[in-house]
Design a protein around this nucleic acid. Structure first.
Lengths: 187, 187
DNA sequence: GTACCCATGTAAAGTGTTACATGATTAC
DNA sequence: GTAATCATGTAACACTTTACATGGGTAC
């Protein structure tokens, strides 16, 4: 499965910073909030732990791309609410406007295991397919339910069109993954 | 897009070693050959550079899971042909037989950029979709051509069933990705 | 003879995960 | 009161990429 010109590459280009800028552009947030967003909103397409987020926030602030405001919740729980600066917003816009001419390898351990099984009648194949079927079926249902709740009001689609698109994309992807698995499960 | 139980994880489990064992199980090879395989055979699902492969081969050999034989091509070009030991084969089988109960986040920079565009009529959307359409269309054609050449003889399917499956999977994935893009390109 | 591929390796730097650490708030 | 969640941070380690480095073989 050669890439077109051997140019599949990820990492080493600090995409995390842009994603954080993008999330902060949607609304000022704390590092904790960002960590949640990486679990809930965009976990299908990128992940980052808080241990990666907090240092990055400091870097971005030192670079003048974001600022923070200290707030206190309740008696004395300290929070840092981060906001984009004009510089940060410029950088975000520049990133979004740049072409993305690279295919990303989708690391998939299950698929690789399949690759190493040679014979079509190997008894390990069916249980493996079943396991993945359950996994992806559950994920698909989860995503569908999410779309129903987040976009219950059709009017929100136009206000968060990108969000709608990527949720739709994720649902399509899982749908066809499940279909593909089902196709080979029958046999 | 929450994962089912916040359990999407990759890395830190040294999958590379298993993939190398799997590749060597198919046939004894050099590190150079392995690097090519990561570009051509399984590049859709995993990647590794030679700078990662050579040290890993040493580790695997030190662990007694592979051995090498020095050969010379031509006058004096040194090659190391690596082979699985019984221990290595056991470890490979154990890995393949283990469940793979985790969803992998498919990092996709383009999709993330979309996420940060809020309005459906943003003029950046259409050119972005067009760019991705061309990219994935080309990749799809490449994969289809690959299937035609590798599995021209239908009999090879049963001898390399896993290979057939993952190529089929990659083709399905690209097909639906292209369809998804086309759907939103029309509008 | 030169460009391109074969072949192997190391070094440096960046990215990402897991573990360590601490403390406040809320719901039961 | 206690468990779960909110909130922030650092340290150690593992993984990955890019760059540095060297030399042989083949086709033109």
């Amino acid at each position: 499965m050669t890439s077109i010109k051997g140019k599949i590459t990820i990492g080493q280009r600090n995409r995390l910073q842009y994603i954080i800028l993008g999330l902060l552009n949607q609304q000022p947030q704390t590092g904790y909030d960002l960590a949640k967003a990486f679990e809930n909103e965009i976990g299908e397409f990128w992940q980052a732990q808080h241990s990666q987020i907090y240092p990055m926030l400091k870097r971005l602030e030192a670079a003048g791309e974001i600022t923070h405001e200290d707030t206190v919740a309740g008696e004395k729980l300290a929070k840092k609410q981060y906001t984009l600066t004009p510089t940060g917003r410029e950088k975000l816009v520049a990133w979004v406007s740049q072409p993305s001419p690279e295919l990303t390898p989708n690391k998939d351990e299950f698929i690789l295991k399949l690759y190493f099984i040679k014979k079509a009648d190997d008894p390990r194949i069916q249980p493996m397919l079943r396991e993945q079927y359950q996994l992806h079926q559950a994920q698909l249902q989860h995503l569908q339910q999410r779309r129903e709740t987040v976009f219950a009001d059709r009017a929100t689609i136009d206000q968060a069109y990108g969000h709608y698109l990527i949720l739709d994309h994720a649902i399509e992807r899982e749908t066809h993954y499940v279909e593909w698995l089902a196709q080979y499960l029958k046999k």
